[in-house]
Nucleic acid binder design. Structure first.
Length: 847
RNA sequence: GCGGGCGUGGUGGAACUGGUAGACGCGCCAGACUCAAAAUCUGGUACCGCAAGGUGUGUCGGUUCGAUUCCGACCGCCCGCACCA
């Protein structure tokens, strides 16, 4: 019998699925729905192993649910705006549009060769005018609803490239491309008001019970809610100063007030204080990198002002400017209580400010309790705090808050770490912001009828700065309000906006409004979303925000976009290097445990397994594996052995093993002889081999069904290995049973190796495709056996086993256990003190 | 520093709510087939020991008839956040 020819077979079945439109999904349906989605790719040019793993998992689930009778939505698109296209355009002189669409064409073909059951009729790219047109409409609706506003923002400005840089693009205070020292600039920018949803984005995390706990915790921390008190200090210059604290109980331990260098009052004071100006400049030199902050000393500058203690006007606290106070959190000003805050303590020790303990741990003596170099942040009772003395921390917090609220000097407030989302980017390859700047009317939104604002056909990258800003033909327009001359907003939206609602658009990709509500109501939420953990915070938080904002606008009915979330691990490979640096696996040959260069057989050092990356040159292209072995082999590899949430290591040996298993299934099916015609009633197994094979098949159905539903692909794979072993080991089973077992194996393997399954299915004599065949059901009666073998322990040590009737009573089991040779030996004639019988599981004898 | 996770054979990993540790795969060893190789098939493979037997899930301790699983302390590795008042 010929070996399985994956190349020919895969091509044939892909065309056949296409021809029969098996994966094209209607907008509605009567069947229960299941929306399976993998994070859509950026069209970088090639599919990599991470994509292959991600899309294989999603496809297995989609095919499985389809077989189970669900109406499955499984779409694909392209996250197509972004910087790499601009870089390619500048470096290669192509247009970002052409570059992007060429990449898409290439990657689409690669995905098709993976045999994914995608509904390609819904495909779109975020750079399609049709998509960003709808996104501009959404922007206007957000604007009208108050979810968008224009505000001042401190940004990282690269003076050479004339653009804003993201924090991660600033390396040691310099622009990553230009090397120029980055400036902090205040710019007027567009913001999405995500903080308006902070509270609900936080509380709703509790409802996402099919999300990884890890991701929920990360989001919780990112949102960072804290309850406290915002209150006022009266300053010596007559002004008032707002301060936020979560520890109002420690107010009598205050020894200074500190302002952020970026605080408006600091800025005001600096106008007439050259030394303060120097101090502020010094503070700004310290980068934002974590390591630097860690090392940075606490620095302060005494403004000469004082602040009156809110409970004692005669008690004056110095007002300092301190480098560790952040403008972005709370009010940008704090009161310092050194005894109970480590930063305040470090600061106080440096500037010799008083340190008074006001919270004393239970059992310690208030008089002798002293603070050394570590602040006390634990629980306890108040001391040295006048009317608070003796109270617990919580009582004191409440007391201070109540008194200051009564006095009109403060208010209980909730603060979030989460900031509003700055979406303006000075980039030409993004969704234009549909706003104009009119000399008379100011900032004016376009009318919906003026949309889309299309990107210019030609984008000029020959000079630095934002090409849209220089393209006067594009930039100059008329004001929709007054008809006078106006300029378009030349910024584009952060590409995270594009990916924040694409899954909603997929419900009806070509609707004339952003959302087809009927379709969205039917399909949403996404039942299973699959992607990398790297999106745990930003993308998933932004998408949750968009969904809530769109819900508020009546565009969708759901509050949460993703009912189930799964974060898959990375694909790794060994690294190799020699004197010249990293060496690619293609150039390496392995012999025994050692590696050598293919060309000159020079030894190569084998390094640790790392995420596949260009920089370490340890990338294997899925395309080469598909060319050598076929898509089913690479799919099977991605699912085997390693649990899907963990990092998987690609190995040649593993790939060959997968290929051998593909052939093994094919051999079992194609060499099967004497099978009855398909569809005939199954003969009741009369002999032992048949019965046991039938049981194996039905056990496999039960196990694989459960494992696939829980995304435990590695266990489903193991189940299929067991079933194939059982089939190979049962040549004596009757023909009907063998047919049933083979068919079961093929159907269970089909979501994972769909092409091979089709080929086998046809070989087994079926006219319909596997892709059209319902998922098998197991017969629970077959999983029951008449007898069970259970272990016998003596004092927790295994000494033997007994086989008893499934429904044997405890006394029978006990007697059988005590009669065991090993048990007798272990007991050495002594009478057991106690016998524990767990029916069907174990017997433990206590001697 | 704070938050979270993970430590099981040569290796990836199994082990449901505490109940036969090492399923299944990879690798390795031996054998069959072959002129030979590939492919395939058969058997073996936690460790110590000739064996009887003993020891084993990072370390130490606890709970239990019984612990990879629960609790405590420690060691190691990984991830996220980070001067958040």
């Amino acid at each position: 019998m010929a070996r399985y020819n994956a190349k020919e077979s895969e091509k044939y079945w892909q065309a056949e699925w296409d021809r029969r439109k098996l994966f094209v999904t209607p907008e509605h349906g009567d069947k229960p729905k299941c929306y399976v989605l993998e994070m859509f790719p950026y069209p970088s040019g090639r599919i990599h192993m991470g994509h292959a793993r991600n899309y294989t998992m999603g496809d297995v689930l989609a095919r499985f649910r389809r077989a189970q009778g669900y109406n499955v939505l499984h779409p694909m698109g392209w996250d197509a705006f972004g910087l790499p296209a601009e870089n390619a355009a500048r470096d290669q002189g192509v247009s970002p549009r052409d570059w992007t669409y060429e990449n898409i064409a290439h990657m689409r073909a690669e995905l098709k060769r993976m045999g994914l059951s995608l509904d390609w009729s819904r495909e779109f790219a975020t750079c399609d005018p049709e998509y960003y047109h709808q996104q501009q409409k959404l922007f206007l609706q957000f604007y009208q609803a108050g979810f968008v506003y224009r505000g001042e923002a401190d940004v990282n400005w690269d003076p050479v490239d004339q653009t804003v840089l993201a924090n991660e693009q600033v390396i040691d205070g310099r622009g990553w491309r230009s090397g120029a020292v980055v400036e902090r600039r205040k710019l007027s920018q567009w913001f999405f008001k995500i903080t308006a949803f902070a509270e609900e984005l936080l509380t709703a995390l509790d409802t996402l019970d099919r999300w990884p706990e890890k991701v929920r915790i990360m989001q919780r921390n990112w949102i960072g809610r804290s309850e406290g008190l915002t209150f006022q200090f009266q300053l010596s210059d007559g002004e008032k100063l707002d301060v936020f604290t979560t520890r109002p109980d420690t107010l009598f331990g205050a020894s200074f007030v500190a302002l952020s260098p970026d605080h408006p009052l600091t800025q005001e004071l600096a106008k007439s204080d050259l030394k303060l100006q120097d101090f502020i400049a010094e503070c700004r030199k310290t980068g934002t990198a974590e390591a630097e902050i860690e090392k940075a000393d606490k620095q302060g500058y005494d403004t000469g002002l004082t602040a009156a203690h809110p409970f004692d006007p005669n008690w004056k606290l110095p007002v300092m400017v301190a480098n560790f106070v952040l403008m972005g959190y709370g009010t940008g000003a704090i009161f310092g209580c050194p005894a109970h805050d480590q930063r305040d303590l470090d600061f106080a020790r440096k500037y010799e400010l008083p340190v008074t303990a006001v919270v004393v741990p239970e059992g310690a003596d208030a008089k002798s309790f002293a603070i050394g170099n570590e602040a006390y942040i634990g629980p306890g009772r108040l001391a040295n705090s006048r009317f608070l003395d003796g109270m617990t921390v919580d009582q004191a917090k409440a007391e201070v808050a109540t008194r200051l609220e009564k006095a009109g000097m403060g208010k209980r407030t909730v603060n979030f770490r989460l900031r509003d989302w700055l979406v303006s980017r000075q980039r030409p390859w993004g969704c234009p912001i549909p706003m104009v700047h009119c000399q008379k009317c100011g900032v004016v939104p376009l009318k919906e009828s003026d949309l889309p604002v299309l990107l210019p056909d030609k984008i000029d990258f020959s000079k630095s700065g934002n090409p849209l800003d220089r393209d006067l033909k594009w930039k100059n327009t008329i004001c929709p309000t007054c008809g006078g001359p106006a300029a378009r907003d030349t910024d584009t939206l952060d590409t995270f906006a594009d990916s924040s609602w694409y899954f909603i658009r997929f419900c009806d990709s070509h609707a004339r409004t952003p959302v087809n509500k009927d379709a969205a109501d039917y399909w949403l939420p996404v039942d299973q979303y699959i992607g990398g953990i790297e999106h745990a915070i930003l993308h998933l938080l932004y998408a949750r925000f968009f969904t809530r904002a769109m819900n508020r606008l009546g565009l969708v009915s759901v509050q949460e976009p993703f009912a189930g979330l799964f974060t898959q691990g990375m694909v790794c490979h060994e690294t190799y290097r020699d004197a010249s640096g990293w060496v690619s696996p293609d150039e390496v040959v392995k012999e025994g445990g050692n590696a050598f260069r293919k060309d000159n057989h020079a030894p190569v050092e084998i390094g640790s397994s790392e995420k596949m990356s260009k920089s370490k040159r340890n990338v294997i292209a899925p395309e080469t594996i598909i060319a050598d072995y076929g898509a089913d082999t690479i799919r099977w590899f991605m699912l085997s052995d390693t649990p899907p949430e963990r990092d998987i290591e690609w190995t040649d040996a593993g790939a060959e093993g997968c290929w051998r298993f593909v052939q093994r299934i094919w051999r079992l099916v194609s060499e099967a002889e004497g099978l009855p015609a398909p569809g005939l009633p199954k003969a009741a197994p009369s002999d032992e081999p048949s019965k046991s094979l039938r049981q194996s098949a039905h056990k496999a159905i039960a196990a694989v069904t459960e494992d696939l539903g829980a995304l435990r692909f590695n266990r489903a794979v193991a189940q299929l290995y067991m079933l194939s072993n059982a089939i190979a080991d049962s040549p004596k089973a009757d023909a009907a049973t063998r047919r049933e077992a083979l068919e079961t194996m093929v159907l269970l393997a089909a979501p994972m190796m769909p092409h091979l399954a089709e080929e086998c299915w046809r070989t087994l004599g079926h006219d319909r495709l596997v892709a059209e065949t319902p998922w098998p059901k197991h017969d629970p009666a077959l999983l029951q056996t008449d007898t069970v073998t259970i272990a016998v322990q003596v004092n927790g040590r295994r000494r033997g086993e007994v086989t008893v009737a499934r429904d044997a009573d405890n006394r029978t089991v006990e007697a059988a256990a005590l009669a065991e040779d090993g048990v007798k030996r272990a007991l050495a004639g002594a009478a057991p003190k106690k016998v524990i019988v767990v029916p069907g599981r174990i017997v433990n004898i206590v001697a």
